[in-house]
Amino acid sequence: MKTLSFVLLAPLAAFAAETTPPPRLEPVVVTATRDARPLTDVPASLDVLDATTLRRARPALGLAEALPRVPGLVVRDRQNQAQDLQVSIRGFGARASFGVRGLRLYADGIPATMPDGQGQVSHFALGAAERVEVLRGPYSALYGNSAGGVVSVFSEAPPPAAELEADALAGSDGLWRAGASWRGPLTANAGLRVDA
């Protein structure tokens, strides 16, 4: 019995002695930037619509007025405020029965997409927007999984001196809009903007 156990353990000891540990690999660090950079330095499909583009000869009621000029993006205004717009970037969001699905929405850097991937764009205040950025393609994965694209709306910063502005718009088919805005500094490092 003792001879048999020695015969079985001898090949295992020889096998363990012959194996060497694999070579140790150097650590790999992967970083992705989400800070402000010039548009020409960003290697992604990114479009920026500034304030004049958003408001040029438009009532600025919703994103359906300005976003169709972005390539690869389809916006369907269903003429039903309960369902909101249907936004599709390269096919993502095309099957949403209401709202926006499969895209990430941000308002001044604050996520406007629910954890289940559903979002609404009706709360974006285009009258106060400085710019809208649309990120398409694989770089939108930097903002999380299931992100077929990213739509970010950035508000204008309050000016150094207080300003009050009022505007009105009227058109055919009963179109009308009235708005008021107050913006100004609160402290040396903070400002406030109120739009109605």
Rank of each mutant, 00 (worst) to 15 (best):
T3E: 13
L4E: 09
L4C: 04
L4Q: 10
S5F: 07
F6V: 09
V7M: 11
L9T: 12
A10N: 07
P11Q: 05
A13V: 11
E18C: 08
T19S: 03
T19V: 12
T19K: 10
T19M: 12
T20Y: 09
P21A: 15
P22M: 07
E26L: 07
V29G: 12
V30Q: 12
A32Y: 09
A32M: 12
T33K: 11
R37C: 05
L39Y: 04
V42M: 12
V42R: 14
L49G: 00
D50C: 03
D50I: 07
A51M: 06
R55H: 11
R55N: 05
G62E: 01
A64R: 08
A64L: 00
A66S: 15
L67I: 04
R69P: 00
R69Y: 00
R69L: 07
V70C: 02
R76L: 13
R78Q: 09
A82K: 15
Q83H: 09
Q86E: 08
V87R: 01
G93Q: 02
G93C: 05
A94D: 01
R95P: 01
F98P: 02
A107C: 06
D108G: 06
P111S: 10
G117K: 00
Q118R: 10
G119W: 01
G119L: 01
S122V: 04
S122W: 02
F124V: 07
A125V: 11
A125W: 01
A125K: 12
A128W: 03
V134H: 02
V134Y: 05
V134S: 02
L135A: 10
R136I: 06
Y139G: 12
Y139E: 11
A147P: 04
G149I: 08
S155N: 14
P158T: 06
P158E: 04
P160L: 14
A161F: 05
A161I: 09
A161S: 14
A162D: 10
E163I: 15
E163N: 15
A166W: 08
A168E: 09
L169I: 13
G174Q: 12
W176I: 06
A178F: 13
A178K: 14
A180C: 04
W182K: 03
G184L: 00
G184N: 05
P185W: 10
L186Y: 09
L186N: 13
L186S: 14
T187S: 14
A188R: 15
A188I: 01
A188F: 07
G191V: 10
V194L: 15
V194E: 08
D195W: 07
A196P: 00
